[in-house]
Amino acid sequence: MSVMKHLALTAAVMLVLSCGQRNKEAQNALEDPHQNIDREQLIEMNRKYLKAENQAIEAYVKDRKWDYTVHSNGVYYRILKKGGQSLKPKEGDVVVFRSVMELLNGKRLYEEAPTRRMLRIDREDAEIGLHEMLKLFSPGDSVQMVLPSYLAFGLAGDLDEVGMRQPIVYSIKIEKIQTQQ
């Protein structure tokens, strides 16, 4: 083999190997996009955001002069009307209710008029805070509540009308509870 062919072959092999190494480095960067972000910084940024979100929710309920309760999960709520029944839903029961959803700025979501919904408690895909809070109420109860973003649509929102990290205001009237047989 001539020296030129040998040099060309060596150069080609080195080029392929260096491309493979660069590709591997690029792939590693894609696998962990936060590799250069300090974990403690992320935790602290999240704490600050949650504090600011909680302050916004507190301001919302105080501006409207709600006589509210704060549930242990962080949901602010008020009971507008008690229905007088004692039946409360549990896992597997279906709750039939009417609801209106809004953002803290008052923008209505999805429908202008109350929408009739059915939700099988702890068994259907819906906001986790909604599942948790519906367990507190009985048929005939009317409530308003503000779900923090982490109990509503989370970090990403719903990819439609709810943006990233948005608390959701619900106005709900429980119509009936279909108990699991």
Rank of each mutant, 00 (worst) to 15 (best):
L30S: 03
Q41R: 09
A26T: 06
S86Q: 01
G84A: 10
S72R: 13
E58I: 07
Y77R: 04
Y76H: 09
K81A: 07
R39Y: 04
R39F: 03
E44P: 00
W66F: 11
E53Y: 01
K65M: 05
I57G: 00
E58D: 13
A52R: 09
K81L: 08
E31C: 07
Y60K: 00
Q55D: 15
Q85G: 05
C19S: 12
A52H: 06
N73S: 15
A29M: 08
I79R: 05
R22H: 09
G20R: 01
E53W: 03
Y77L: 15
S18K: 01
K88Q: 14
L50T: 03
K82S: 13
K81Q: 14
A52C: 03
Y49N: 03
R64F: 00
H71D: 15
Q35D: 07
K65S: 12
A56R: 01
I43Y: 02
Y60N: 05
A56L: 09
S18H: 06
S72V: 14
Q21D: 06
S18V: 11
R39C: 03
V61Q: 02
K82E: 14
Y77H: 14
K51Q: 10
L17F: 10
E58N: 09
K65L: 06
L50K: 13
E58S: 09
R78C: 14
Q85R: 13
G74F: 03
K82C: 04
N36T: 12
L17V: 12
I79L: 15
A52Y: 02
L50W: 04
T69P: 00
S72F: 11
D63L: 02
L87R: 03
N28R: 15
H71M: 13
A29F: 04
V75N: 00
L80N: 12
K65W: 00
W66R: 04
E44W: 07
N23R: 05
D67M: 08
E53S: 10
P33S: 03
G74W: 05
K81T: 10
L87N: 04
A26W: 11
H71F: 10
E25S: 08
R22L: 15
K88E: 09
G83P: 01
W66I: 10
Q55Y: 07
M45Y: 07
S18T: 14
N28L: 15
D63G: 01
D32V: 02
S86L: 02
L87E: 08
A56V: 01
E25T: 08
Q85W: 08
W66P: 01
A56H: 01
I43H: 00
S86R: 00
L50Q: 11
Y49D: 05
D38Q: 08
K24Y: 13
A26Y: 07
R47G: 01
R47T: 08
L30C: 08
Q41N: 10
S86G: 00
R47M: 10
Q55N: 14
R64N: 06
L80R: 04
R78I: 12
S18W: 10
Q21F: 14
I57C: 03
L42D: 05
G20I: 05
D38S: 12
S18E: 09
R22S: 10
L30I: 10
Q55V: 04
L17K: 01
I43K: 04
Y49K: 07
D38I: 06
G20H: 05
Y77A: 05
E91M: 15
M45V: 05
Y60V: 06
K51L: 12
L17G: 05
K65C: 06
I79K: 07
R64W: 00
I37C: 01
